[in-house]
Every structure is written in C-alpha cells, then in structure tokens.
Nucleic acid binder design. Structure first.
Length: 113
DNA sequence: AAGGTGACCGGCC
DNA sequence: TGGCCGGCCACCT
C-alpha cells in the first residue's frame, strides 16, 4: 500500500477530481461520487480511493461521508475528532459523528458537473 | 494467478 | 423497526 502504478490509479484520479470539486462548506456521499463516475454500485471503490487519498492534501476526504451522513471514515483520520473539527470549521454541524441537516449541506457532483 | 479485503449501498427477512 | 446478506469493482499480498 504505497506504490499503486501511476497507470492504474486512473480510477483514483477520477475520484480525487470529484472530491476536489466539493465546494467549501458542502459535503457529499460515496454513492453520489460513484454515480458521477458512472458506477453507482461501486461506491466501495470510492471509499477505497479515499483511503489512498490520505497521501494527497488536495482531496478533502472529510467532506465525503456515507449516504447516511455519518462520518464513517473519521476513524481513518489522524485525530479521532479531526474530521468533525474540519467540518465544523466549514460551518457544517456535526453531532455524534453525524452531519446535521445532511441534505442541506449535501452537494451533488452530477449536478455541478 | 487467485483470493481476500474495503472510509458502501440497497434490498430483503 | 432493525439487523443480515449479497453485489460491485479495483487494489494488495
């Protein structure tokens, strides 16, 4: 988990590209990104790509949560509450690892793209 | 080369 | 009402 041939991470790039376009103060779900990629059922892959996005600072992974609005990947961040802190810093209310009014802050990549 | 895994989603029991 | 199961695609060992 360190190399990933530059030729094969085309899929990853696609995910990063979407995640990078998430507006400040907005959030989206893995499924939404998956649909934007044309693979609605491959939401898992999006999460996988996010896992690799740890190496990149251009990808705001904290703005990506599951369709439940739950900070599923917060455990993967440096700190335990770093993800929540970042979201709150952008004006997104987070309670108990869950985004409040998720639908209100939700950003659909398909619409913007 | 094959098997196992994963920050998910949706449907079914 | 809530928990279980399968599917899906790419990456890693």
């Amino acid at each position: 988990m360190k190399k990933q041939s530059p030729e094969t991470d085309n899929f990853f790039e696609r995910v990063y590209e979407i995640a990078r376009q998430i507006p400040y103060g907005n959030v989206t779900s893995y499924g939404a990104i998956a649909k934007a990629l044309g693979a609605a059922r491959s939401a898992r892959m999006v999460g996988w790509a996010m896992n690799a996005s740890h190496n990149l600072d251009d990808v705001p992974a904290h703005r990506v949560v599951n369709r439940n609005g739950l900070l599923s990947g917060k455990h993967h961040f440096d700190g335990t509450n770093l993800m929540q802190q970042l979201l709150e810093n952008e004006g997104v209310k987070v309670v108990d690892n869950q985004i409040v009014d998720f639908e209100k802050f939700f950003w659909n990549p398909i619409v913007d793209l």
